[in-house]
Nucleic acid binder design. Structure first.
Length: 549
DNA sequence: TTTAGGG
DNA sequence: CCCTAAA
């Protein structure tokens, strides 16, 4: 699609929104009336019916997905609404809170949850339709939240024709409309980030209210460690290099930066090259792009380099490749709090994974459901302060590569923010800062988990981590055998069952934290097992110890 | 692929 | 938690 010049866009947008507001004035104002406008806008955008530009992407997806996918979607949407609702109550109080006030532990939990979403995605293989939705959301967000002039506004003209809840069962209309929107939108780092920031709050809130309270006594004592803090700081730092680059107008720089980037995380975030996008933008080339993605995945370090950005608009929606990119987007959306089933999130992963009901709730994925007001509002709440909250509020919206087999290949996820040409560098800089960094996806070990681990070791001894994983942690996908082993290593150190070679204060402190958070009984067992199943198979004396079993 | 070990 | 070497 031809790119609109700025002027054009600017003039069109306001109109559109003005009309939108009129149409939906009723949306539920029980909450912060001032926010209503934006809320309405968002809502409307989400419901945006198709326009003349039917994105091929959307159509394809719709056709392919069929019923199975629908049910999956339903689960999410429903869950999200539900969660949001619960969430909203607490938002106010947190909005003004500074980043430092956030409970890091909670944040940690939230971050972990992002990963889980990824898992879910993997299981269900969501595709295009969701992407579109997500993109939509992003657009909506951009428009309603950010105070800079929206672009491509002209493409949103058809807002007058409302199509309620483009559910999965609905005609291709809804989906098409969404994809249309997304095409116009093209994730800009700003919008994305804006969302991101906002949702972090929401989630944090949710987590703190629910998760923590429901924890076991032993876990209550688990406090954020200095590690957490450090990580957060790191995030900020990591983001910096990218920020400046992203703000630059040419994608080239970004690409270079990505190349030069030392952090793997940054690499993953890398934006799609122009050429790549262009190719993908061609409706016919869907297969081509798939192939391409595979190729790029294969070529570890050889990433496509491109430059032009004009095609990005078209490419955006289409460019999303099946898996990786989508998963990322999906997660993004999730982290943005848009469609995320918060109630699911707050649950232990194991529960979620095992409970099929959440993916087949029987509800339709409808953006305009009764729950919507909540959604919108929640979004709304993402106070600007959030974007100012700094590093600690940051959270990754991207999940790490699937556990277990970390793919060396570069995920095509860099599609995230392909639009570089943006003029509003300021906004972008500020916000992109947050989106571009990733936090280590760490999941706190809970006491029950530790106990399970210990049981497993008692049964199998050390060295059979896969077995332990399978038997004791079959329901928790996020714990890999390696994780188990690492945890055991840590436990040994913490329990003093192992000679501690690190005499650094820092390390000791950390260990102390661990000890504090776990019941002493646990450590007793650890010590027992340590003598029974020596971990380093070489005893302190240097003698090899045969594994029992 | 899994384990072990180092970072 | 991540990565790599070795088995």
């Amino acid at each position: 699609m031809p790119r609109m010049d700025k002027l054009d866009r600017e003039t069109h947008f306001p109109k559109k929104f003005a009309s939108m507001k009129c149409q939906r004035v009723k949306v539920d104002d029980s909450f912060a009336p001032a926010l209503e406008d934006e809320a309405v806008e968002v809502q409307h955008l989400l419901a945006e019916p198709k326009t003349d530009h039917v994105s091929v992407d959307g159509v394809l997806c719709l056709g392919k997905e069929k019923s199975s996918k629908c049910s999956e979607t339903n689960g999410f949407s429903f869950g999200f609404n539900d969660g949001m609702r619960r969430n909203i109550g607490g938002l106010h109080s947190h909005i003004t809170q500074g980043p430092d006030d956030l409970d890091l532990g909670v944040l940690d939990g939230f971050l972990d949850e992002v990963d889980e979403v990824d898992d879910i995605h993997a299981a269900n293989d969501f595709s295009g339709a969701y992407e579109d939705f997500i993109l939509d959301v992003e657009l909506a967000q951009k428009v309603s939240y950010l105070d800079y002039t929206p672009r491509d506004g002209s493409r949103l003209r058809n807002s007058s024709s409302e199509s309620q809840s483009p559910g999965c069962s609905g005609s291709s209309n809804g989906a098409a409309g969404m994809s249309e929107l997304s095409t116009a939108t093209i994730p800009e780092s700003e919008s994305k980030n804006g969302w991101h920031n906002k949702t972090v709050k929401c989630k944090l809130r949710r987590s703190s209210g629910d998760k923590w309270n429901s924890q076991e006594p032993g876990e209550d004592s688990v406090c954020p460690t200095s590690d957490d803090i450090e990580d957060l700081d790191e995030l900020d730092d990591d983001a910096k290099p990218l920020i400046s680059l992203v703000s630059g107008k040419n994608a080239k720089k970004v690409v270079q930066a990505a190349k030069a980037g030392t952090s793997a995380r940054q690499k993953r975030l890398r934006k799609p090259t122009k050429r790549y996008i262009e190719e993908l933008s061609d409706p016919k080339s869907k297969q081509v792009m798939e192939r391409k993605s595979d190729l790029s995945a294969t070529l570890k370090d050889k990433r496509p380099k491109i430059r032009s950005h004009d095609e990005l608009h078209c490419g955006g929606a289409l460019a999303r490749t099946p898996k990786e990119s989508f998963s990322e987007n999906f997660n993004q959306a999730i982290s943005k709090g848009n469609d995320e089933p918060l109630h699911l999130r707050s649950k232990p992963v194991s529960e979620r994974r095992t409970n099929p009901s959440f993916i087949s709730k029987g509800r339709c994925w409808s953006v305009t459901s009764q729950n919507e007001p909540c959604q919108v509002r929640a979004v709304k709440f993402a106070p600007k302060e959030l974007s100012l909250t700094g590093p600690s509020a940051q959270a990754p919206f991207e999940s790490r590569p699937r556990r277990g087999r970390p793919k060396k290949s570069l995920p095509l996820s860099f599609l995230e923010s392909e639009d570089d040409e943006s003029e509003d560098d300021c906004v972008k800089k500020r916000i992109s800062k947050k989106s571009n960094d990733r936090r280590k996806h760490q999941r706190m070990w809970t006491t029950p988990e530790v106990m399970k681990l210990i049981d497993g070791i008692a049964q199998y001894g050390t060295g059979r981590w896969t077995d332990i994983k399978k038997l004791m942690f079959s329901s928790t996908a996020y714990r890999t055998p390696i994780d188990l082993r690492d945890k055991w290593r840590n436990l040994l150190r913490a329990s003093g069952a192992q000679k501690r070679k690190s005499n650094k204060k820092e390390d000791k402190e950390k260990l102390k934290d661990v000890v504090r958070s776990l019941p002493s009984s646990v450590f007793r067992r650890v010590r027992e097992l340590a003598s029974l199943h020596p971990y380093p198979r070489f005893s302190p004396g240097g003698r090899y110890i045969r594994r029992k079993n």
